[in-house]
Design a protein around this nucleic acid. Structure first.
Lengths: 237, 237
DNA sequence: GTCTATAACCGGATAGAC
DNA sequence: GTCTATCCGGTTATAGAC
């Protein structure tokens, strides 16, 4: 295990990965067969499966790249903006900018990602590190915001914003408008609305409603977070 | 075309459909191969494909059965309940009761249904009749409710409730709690909350927030409804 | 138009030899 | 680690029978 140089296996693995990514970008996910990838990478089919047990395993690698790129852009937003409203808006706009070039690919991946049993589901055990890193980021976004936020709500907000962001991505996947303008509008309007709603929850009259909302969250929240989903049993039900 | 008796073709078709449904129920969707279905129905593989051009085509038939059963139960709720809150709660509880026995099957179907390009997506052109029938039902639910609802909001509410109901089903699909208790809690809390929020929107102070919400809806709404999605091109991207 | 039988294609996945 | 051969299941094609 020399630290500087990659082992042969590592080189083969990243060769296959790069080839897959290029091919996905060129021809889309469904059109890129495992045989294509292996052939183009100059390895045997079985060898590709040796490093990537299923075609879906390429997806996690793609996630991680995207997330690194996003995190980089998000840090800039947190430094530049101070209100919750503008931080949220900035982050969502940055996200859209980054993922838009991959719209077609994401549409194809979504078929796998939507399956709760798949390891590439955003709610899977395998996605936990990425998911927690993402919620953690929203925690920092909320902590640094200047608005007055009821503390019980503030505690839940990172999780809620993460969930909301998942909803935006879901909407974006289905969005066929030119340049995803519709999703951009959604982001614009809803960042604004969320900012208003959050501060509105501070006024005393809203106390009962706030409590109801918090109760709802408490009753329902653990889903996707605390529980361990059983691993995907390749072909089941 | 004699009205009373089915033609031979109709009989064969429903024989195949029944067999498929039974098999799905017994072994799950992925485990039931087209070869299984054909064999069990006592027809040739090609004959199954003659009536059901793809495996997914069985899904629409399944949808329709479920929706008929639901509609029947829902009518009873509308007759028995008068407030928006209780009507909504009654309908959602009835829905959960009806779909719960098919949890495993729905989980498997979801992989296809989640793909926006698939004809079995709830947002597809092929699903339009079912979708509109469902939104129409929510229209009647809202029309008959006794609460005072701001008219501009009332106009949008059927669509919003349909969307919300889709969200509940999505949550349910991911819900692994025993007997889907967590989804039941979600339904209980959120029907209550929605009832409160809707009437809250009538009070004058809420006017600006209400307007913001309506603007958001207007900016974003047409998605899934007015546009024609291109048909699924079997293997694309 | 309805149906059978059979073979074949394609692509994800696996087994087992080297 | 890497290969070849094979399985499996959705899907298609063909050619012909009723």
């Amino acid at each position: 295990m020399n630290a500087g140089k990659q082992t042969k296996g590592e080189r083969t693995k990243s060769l296959i990965l790069e080839t897959a990514m290029t091919l996905f970008q060129e021809k889309g996910y469904d059109e890129s067969t495992m045989r294509n990838i292996a052939e183009r990478a100059g390895v045997a089919l079985g060898n590709a499966y040796y490093y990537f047990p299923s075609k879906e395993h390429f997806i996690h690698a793609f996630y991680e790249r995207l997330w690194n790129e996003q995190l980089l852009a998000y840090e800039g937003v947190l430094e530049a903006e101070s209100t919750l409203k503008r931080r949220l808006l900035g982050v969502l706009v940055a996200e859209l900018r980054i993922i838009e070039p991959h719209h077609r690919l994401c549409l194809a991946l979504f078929k796998s990602a939507a399956d709760p049993r798949s390891p590439v589901s955003p709610f899977s055990e395998e996605s936990r590190p990425l998911r927690e890193s993402c919620i953690d980021f929203y925690r920092r976004l909320v902590e640094g915001a200047t608005e007055t936020i009821p503390p019980e709500l503030k505690r839940e907000l990172p999780y809620l914003l993460w969930l909301f962001h998942m909803g935006v991505v879901l909407f974006w996947i289905y969005d066929r408008s030119f340049g995803s303008i519709r999703t951009q509008k959604l982001v614009l309007h809803s960042a604004d609305l969320i900012g208003n709603l959050v501060t509105l929850m501070s006024v005393p009259v809203m106390s009962p409603i706030r409590q109801r909302i918090l109760n709802l969250i408490a009753a329902v929240k653990t889903e996707f977070l605390d529980e361990t989903l059983p691993p995907l049993n390749p072909s089941q039900s």
